[in-house]
Amino acid sequence: MGYAHDFLALFLRWAHVVAGISWIGSSFYFMWLDASLKRRAGMPDGVKGDNWSVHGGGFYHTQKYMVAPEAMPDDLHWFKWESYATWLTGFALLSVVYWANAELYLVAPGGRVEPGVAIFWSVFGIVAGWVVYDLLCRSPLARAPMVLFGLLFVLITFTAYLYGHVFSGRAAFLQTGAMIATVMTGNVFFVIIPNQRVVVADLKAGRTPDPKYGVIAKLRSTHNNYLTLPVLFLMLSNHYPMTFGSPHAWVIVAIALCLGAIVRHWFNTYETGAKGVAVAWQWPLALALAVAMTAYAGLASAPSVPVASAGRTVADTEAFAIVAERCAPCHAAAPTFAAFNAAPGGVFLDTPERMATNADAIVAQAVTTHTMPLGNITGMTEAERATLAAWAAK
């Protein structure tokens, strides 16, 4: 059963990545297409602009209507299942990995909440995130897009801060990403596609479509576009404990939100043909934010590294006794911990030689960021972490 669970997680992760590539690819393409449209003489009434492209040896001519064409075309292609498939596979992956093993992946070390309670807050956070966001977008704030986006930034950052007090660092980042991703798919399912269906129904009935539906959908689509890169960062971060392992990891989330949005803004601006200052400030600022994130992660993690007593030397045998008890139940050729059939990440710590080979990883995961053991399931103490720090420093 263990291998079956692992393969289920693998296939779901694979499907999630494939669906995500499809959704992000189509989203980025249409944002580029919208920005690249040119108004030319002789265009039909109601056409905003057109685009000529070449790809794969063929030429493509695309036109965009301000609202809709006068009559429905025979074939109309919808872009929705990319979003739905991404969310469904992500939800399934969250269930199989984080909820099914909540005591390992979801619960914060020290057992601040029980696994069942953590799962409840995980589900509640995903649902509540969409409800609050949707209410804000339906409020008068929708007429002030920059104010609304600034408020969303504050709310997402504050949510990440709250998650850090309920979930493990890794789960807090993933949960924040899942909440944002749910907002993005909710925009497609509850707003963008229904609004498009209203326009299509009006065309079929011979009525003139109301432009407001396009305006509403455009606001949600723009939010999706600017949130895409931060979501990707949060989802990838679970492989890098220096991001979620710092005491104030919500700061990393705040920087990632800004960094991703600024990079995306450069692409959106550049693709309109803008030059000069309009496309000159984003990359320097993005680089500065990346440096700031790196520096902050290093400084924030430093105080959590136990400082060994002056002159203390820890023998390999003493260090291995800790590793054998706290780490090797999972990181062994034949793990004794029931959740694993093979050593996570292919890291083996079941002999002194293997422990020495992975000394840097032990310090990073168990000493600097406290992300290992997972959920501190084996009960590693601060004194033991200090001992490992002294051993690695000799």
Results as ranks from 00 to 15, higher is better:
Gly2Lys: 01
Ala4Gly: 10
Ala9Ile: 09
Val17Met: 14
Val18Cys: 14
Gly20Asn: 09
Ser22Met: 06
Trp23Ala: 15
Phe28Asn: 03
Arg39Lys: 14
Arg40His: 09
Met43Ile: 06
Gly46Ala: 10
Val47Ser: 05
Trp52Glu: 06
Gly56Tyr: 07
Gly56Val: 07
Gly57Glu: 01
Gly58Lys: 09
Tyr60Arg: 08
Lys64Glu: 13
Tyr65His: 11
Glu70Lys: 14
Asp74Asn: 08
Leu76Glu: 01
Lys80Asn: 08
Trp81Leu: 10
Glu82Gly: 15
Trp87Cys: 08
Leu88Glu: 01
Gly90Asp: 04
Phe91Val: 15
Val97Ile: 15
Tyr98Arg: 10
Asn101Gln: 15
Ala102Ile: 06
Glu103Val: 03
Ala108Tyr: 02
Gly111Asn: 11
Phe120Lys: 09
Trp121Ile: 12
Ser122Gln: 14
Val123Gly: 11
Val127Ala: 13
Val132Ile: 15
Asp134Leu: 04
Leu136Trp: 01
Leu136Tyr: 00
Cys137Glu: 12
Ala142Pro: 00
Ala144Cys: 00
Pro145Cys: 02
Met146Leu: 15
Val154Trp: 04
Tyr161Cys: 09
Arg170Ile: 10
Ala171Arg: 10
Leu174Cys: 05
Gln175Ser: 15
Ala181Trp: 02
Thr182Gln: 01
Asn187Val: 05
Val191His: 10
Pro211Ala: 12
Pro211Met: 13
Lys212Arg: 15
Gly214Val: 04
Leu232Asn: 05
Phe233Ser: 09
Met235Lys: 03
Asn238Met: 13
His239Glu: 11
Tyr240Trp: 13
Gly245Lys: 11
Ser246Glu: 07
Trp250Ser: 10
Trp250Asn: 06
Ile252Asn: 14
Val253His: 07
Val253Cys: 10
Cys258Met: 15
Val263Ala: 12
Val263Glu: 10
His265Asp: 13
Phe267Thr: 05
Phe267Val: 07
Asn268Ile: 03
Glu271Asn: 14
Gly273Thr: 08
Val279Ser: 01
Gln282Asp: 00
Ala286Cys: 09
Leu287Gln: 02
Leu289Pro: 07
Leu289Lys: 09
Met293Thr: 09
Tyr296Lys: 07
Pro303Ala: 12
Val305Lys: 07
Val307Trp: 03
Ala319Thr: 04
Ala319Cys: 08
Ala324Tyr: 00
His331Phe: 01
Ala343Gly: 04
Pro344Tyr: 01
Gly346Phe: 05
Val347Thr: 14
Thr351Phe: 03
Arg354Gln: 14
Met355Leu: 04
Val367Arg: 02
Met372Asp: 08
Pro373His: 10
Leu374Tyr: 09
Asn376Arg: 06
Ile377Cys: 06
Thr381Arg: 10
Ala383Gln: 12
Ala383Ser: 04
Thr387Met: 13
Ala389Asp: 02
